[in-house]
């Protein structure tokens, strides 16, 4: 019984974990290249969820069409925010970018609230289910996981095969050296920030498959925390570390939820969220450079 439930949750965990991983790649990319922590991360995820909602509910389109649209929205938001604030703060104390990204998150939340209101919304994209004996998985979730893997692979190819990608990698390795070698570091900063935000907003589309009625301007806060746990698991500055961190986190989250449910008198949902915070502290304490090594 427990075993069946656990293995069912394991599968759910991997599927959700892949999406979590993809949703954290942007955060790690931005930190890796610019050394800027996007504390408003969750708000950008939320924007993606609203883009999906708009595509599905208002236009009646397949939510997957929302991915490129969300990506584009993210790129534009990223560029605007980079040139309006981040660029001017790169040499300021860390406090400045932390507060600026945090405020940008608040700004997005409030903007979306003014447009769409603050009630919970959702949509149901019913494309059938797959029965896996121990658990049943909606096809929409499987598509989301496959989409995440596909985006991660695309990013991988882009990093390895394009000039822009290799310029970005060289800046991650050594920004000073890259500048000396003629890499347009300022351009790479702008591009990485935009790409990071683009990926984050796009991930919001995929995450909506897991929250049937959870779309709300303030939904991002929880994702910010999760994204940090995941990013730190993966070493904070590596998008691929983040992807695998997401898988691990998805498994931890689902397993702990299942196990806490067996303890009488506690609320497993809350305790799981407390646990993820605890994991964050523990990793930061023992190994701030990350548990998973991936390049």
């Amino acid at each position: 019984m427990l075993l069946e439930q656990l293995s069912g949750n394991l599968i759910q965990g991997v599927v959700l974990g892949a999406v979590y991983g993809m949703a954290t790649m942007g955060l790690s990319l931005i930190f890796g290249v610019l050394k800027v922590v996007n504390v408003g991360h969750g708000a950008f995820v939320m924007v993606g969820a609203f883009v999906t909602l708009f595509f599905f509910s208002s236009l009646g389109l397949n939510p997957f069409i929302a991915i490129p649209a969300a990506f584009l929205v993210g790129i534009l938001l990223g560029l605007a925010f980079y040139y309006a604030a981040i660029k001017k703060l790169l040499n300021a104390p860390e406090l400045a970018t932390l507060l600026a990204t945090f405020s940008a998150g608040v700004l997005l939340e409030e903007t979306v609230k003014m447009i769409f209101g603050s009630e919970y919304r959702g949509f149901n994209w019913d494309v059938g289910k797959v029965d896996l004996i121990v658990t049943a998985l909606p096809m929409s979730k499987i598509f989301a996981a496959l989409g995440s893997v596909a985006i991660a692979l695309l990013l991988y190819v882009w990093f390895k095969r394009t000039r822009a990608g290799s310029a970005m990698r060289s800046v991650v390795e050594d920004s000073h050296g890259a500048r000396v070698c003629g890499v347009n570091v300022d351009g790479v900063y702008a591009m990485s920030f935009a790409l990071g935000i683009g990926l984050t907003v796009a991930s919001g589309v995929l995450l909506t498959m897991f929250i049937p009625v959870g779309i709300n301007p303030y939904m991002g806060g929880g994702y910010t925390l999760k994204a940090f746990v995941i990013a730190v698991l993966g070493g904070l500055s590596s998008p691929y570390g983040a992807f695998f961190g997401g898988l691990v986190f998805g498994l931890i989250e689902n397993t702990s939820y299942t196990l806490f449910a067996f303890i009488p008198g506690v609320e497993p949902f809350s305790l799981t969220r407390f646990l993820s915070f605890l994991i964050l502290l523990i990793i930061l304490l023992i190994r701030p450079t990350g548990i998973i090594k991936a390049k």
Binding site: L98, L280, L284
Partner: peptide, 8 residues
């Protein structure tokens, strides 16, 4: 340090 503290 700085950023890691804020994350924690």
């Amino acid at each position: 340090r700085g950023a890691y503290f804020a994350i924690a």
